[in-house]
């Protein structure tokens, strides 16, 4: 069983096998990540519509899940807890601090009703009481738009591709 001279070599086969396995794993990971990120994991970018017949307004995105309103302002997402029962009883949030937060947004939108509107992203869990929640905006004549979205789909507001917002002609 002695080794013959001239046939001593380093066997590359295990090394190649490991590399091939690594390659396959990496390819699988790449495809999986792509499939997840582009498919169910993709966020939704909302672009406000541009309609020649309507004044263009800047949307303030508000996600509604039935218990909390998530307001997207200045690159931040502020959560406001709105108690479901209290909405139905008197249209107000229970907690004063939360109520102040919501009131500030309502006032802001009321003041800027000519250039801004509330854009609601309604999650399925918020279907049952969304119409009650929106009444608070309706009472102040704040223009609104709303759209259903999947429960866990991440959302973000993209900048519309039109010029600066200006108030409509009186």
């Amino acid at each position: 069983m002695g080794r013959r001279k001239g046939t001593d070599h380093f066997d590359l086969l295990p090394y190649i096998a490991i590399l091939m396995c690594t390659l396959g794993t990496l390819l699988l990971m790449t495809l999986s990540m792509t499939a997840i990120n582009v498919g169910p994991g993709a966020g939704i970018g909302i672009v406000p519509a541009v309609d020649a017949n309507m004044p263009t307004k800047q949307p303030v995105l508000i996600e509604w899940d039935g218990r909390q309103a998530f307001v997207h302002r200045e690159q931040q997402r502020e959560a406001i807890r709105v108690d479901q029962l209290q909405i139905w009883v008197d249209g107000k949030a229970r907690d004063d601090t939360e109520e102040e937060k919501l009131e500030s947004i309502l006032e802001d939108l009321t003041e800027n009703a000519k250039t801004q509107y509330a854009l609601f992203a309604v999650r399925p869990s918020g279907f049952s009481n969304f119409m009650s929640f929106r009444e608070r905006f309706d009472r102040r004549r704040i223009p609104i738009g709303y759209e259903p979205f999947e429960q866990d789909r991440p959302l973000r507001l993209l900048q519309p591709k039109f010029g600066p917002i200006s108030p409509p002609e009186p």
């Binding site: 939704i44 970018g45 309507m54 223009p143």
Partner: peptide
Amino acid sequence: AVVVRRLPI
């Protein structure tokens, strides 16, 4: 990645 949606008012 985002799915862009247009939302009217």
